[in-house]
Design a protein around this nucleic acid. Sequence first.
DNA 1: TGACGTAATTATGAATTCATAATTCAGTCA
DNA 2: TGACTGAATTATGAATTCATAATTACGTCA
Lengths: 226, 226
Amino acid sequence: MNLPQALKRPTLHEELVERLRNLVVEDALKPGEKVPEKDLCEAFGVSRTPLREALKVLASEGLVVLQTNRGARVAKVTREELEKTFPVIAVLEQLAGEQACLHLDNAGIARIQKRHDAMVKAFHARDRKAYFKANQDIHNALIEGAGNDILETHHRLLAARVRRARYMVNLSDERWAQAIDEHEQMMALLHARDAEGLGLLMKTHMMNKFAAHIRALSFAEEDGLG
Amino acid sequence: MNLPQALKRPTLHEELVERLRNLVVEDALKPGEKVPEKDLCEAFGVSRTPLREALKVLASEGLVVLQTNRGARVAKVTREELEKTFPVIAVLEQLAGEQACLHLDNAGIARIQKRHDAMVKAFHARDRKAYFKANQDIHNALIEGAGNDILETHHRLLAARVRRARYMVNLSDERWAQAIDEHEQMMALLHARDAEGLGLLMKTHMMNKFAAHIRALSFAEEDGLG
DNA sequence: TGACGTAATTATGAATTCATAATTCAGTCA
DNA sequence: TGACTGAATTATGAATTCATAATTACGTCA
């Protein structure tokens, strides 16, 4: 029998970690900006203690940077950091791809296929927002499909740090088409349950994504937006 | 010019994270045990506030588990968790091996060779403790050699969670000899700067290590020590 | 006018306090 | 004796307070 774990009520600091993380990822708190402790306390209606606890956790995740006696700032996502983060995400996705092939049942694969179809539809409709969302869903589903929560946790931590950057670049039509093509191949390999193949493809897919981002970032920097 | 980053004095909670982490990794606080908030406050001579902040961080690292209104316990390292953690460490080491080949200069490789020699010496002297330390040093040096602090951070987080388990198993003579052999090959590939080769070997090396641990753990469980 | 030094203000780290949930323990009754 | 009840104790989460570092505002002098 599967007894429910001693039920877990949330504490303030846990909720705050969630909500602050969202503020950062959704760009309500911008990189480099100070995290206004007092204002946030008022906004959330809590005292400083749980909020500060939450900030410590976010700092350990790398989403904010703490400066002694000078409070917290939202971490900047530098190009250098992207260059270090993407390869790590890539190998985690590779592992996820391999494991997903082994662990997912047919129903699980069908669910991913559905999302894939939605993504292709968004591509043809040139709906970038829907595409982005579906894409994210697929990757998350594959990670989940690996059935390894340690892998999932670390992937999530890393993905959170670059997600903001990923919202900002609007990929070129070429890259977009290429990405769709890669995803088609991924689905084929998943259906064939070619673990090694899917792993390798997911890694290169991620590195291609990365290269596109760096390129886009270069243009942005030239335009003085970096 | 390379300006020093706004110099960073440590805060109490940061020091406490360090010291508590050590207590857990070095097995002074045992898995499943309650973390005695009050005692630790007295021992460290601090109030509960910074200590609790530190516990939140450790919880986000997975070293302790928080239960609402029931305090913190040292996380148990179950076999299931080992089974999920090792593959992730393995792919991170693979990446590290690849990158280290590309980034390390000759001096860096020489430093690792020195540690390797020390490890081989400890092996011949059958000094398990010295071997374990040298082994750890080598792996850490290779990770560092990759020159990717994101990779390093996540490797450290994962390694911390299994280190305790790794202290406990005493590897068989066969496995020990095999490990030495694998390390000899690693050095050869590093000198040859065969990035792909070293990456693959480090991955399988880690998975072999893992298999040996699981075997040892099985015997321990049969002996009723699990 | 503008750079410098100093006082006032604010923000931060950490200790303390407070309300409440969990645990312990004594007492009761079957 | 042993399971149950409820009061006493303790531990925990969160608010508040306090000391000090950082920042801002202001006044002085070149």
